[in-house]
């Protein structure tokens, strides 16, 4: 079991009212498996994802990543843990505009202090099929290419868990499909666990498990 989430609750205060986004979410994910979380807009998908990524903290509950409860880690430990174990892919790519493609990728390694980052970065770019675009800046890349760079950046640290938030959401259908194919093939070949947040049922059905987030609760849906 790589990821075990129990009774995750998250409230926001809005205009003096308590807004219960997550009312107790629990699920497990085995290594090498993928899970899709679908839900309507505003159902709390992104909130759940940011809790899992350790970007935000829940009110109660636990998130066990490989037996370590992320909730109990301090900010610094959490930051390191995230950098080492979790790869994140956003709908908006979130590349640093002033770094070349390969530099964006190698940055993830540099932050962890892993040597030989340039070579590794180029290897990762090769994996996503972007070797020849390594020296380009994000602004010179198409949307699909940008997302491939983001994928390369996510996988270059060889994470155990990949969090993908609507990775094809900003792309046209054809490019989106290509990107998703790439992600699934990488998840399979690198034996990563993945949580895919999407509202695309076709995409969701390509995962091992499917969950629906509704009214702050997570329900499993069978394939």
């Amino acid at each position: 079991m790589i990821l075990s989430v129990e009774n995750l609750q998250k409230n926001f205060l809005q205009g003096g009212n308590k807004l219960e986004i997550l009312k107790g979410v629990s699920f497990n994910l085995s290594s090498g498996k993928s899970a899709a979380i679908v839900g309507k807009s505003g159902s709390g998908k992104s909130t759940l994802l940011s809790l899992l990524a350790g970007i935000d903290r829940p009110n109660t509950g636990s998130i066990n990543l490989e037996g370590i409860n992320l909730i109990e880690l301090d900010e610094k430990e959490l930051t390191v843990k995230r950098a080492q174990e979790i790869g994140i892919i956003f709908q908006q790519f979130h590349l640093l505009p002033h770094l070349k493609a390969w530099e964006n990728v190698s940055l993830a390694l540099d932050i962890l202090g892993i040597g030989n980052s340039k070579v590794e970065a180029h290897k990762a770019l090769e994996k996503v099929g972007l070797s020849e675009r390594a020296e380009h800046f994000p602004s010179e890349l198409s949307g699909g290419e940008k997302q491939r760079v983001a994928i390369a950046r996510a996988i270059v640290v060889k994470p155990r868990l990949l969090l993908a938030d609507e990775p094809s959401g900003s792309l046209d259908e054809e490019t989106g499909d290509e990107v998703m194919d790439l992600i699934f093939s990488l998840v399979n070949s690198d034996k990563m666990a993945m949580i895919l947040v999407t509202h695309n049922k076709d995409l969701a059905s390509r995962c091992h498990d499917q969950y629906v987030l509704e009214h702050g609760l997570l329900a499993q849906r069978n394939n």
Binding site: K76, T79, H94, L107, A108, I111, R153
Partner: peptide, 14 residues
């Protein structure tokens, strides 16, 4: 700030 946040997310130390 967006870059800073992203860097933080990528795990850069404070």
């Amino acid at each position: 700030r967006k870059d800073i946040v992203l860097l933080k997310m990528l795990g850069i130390s404070f």
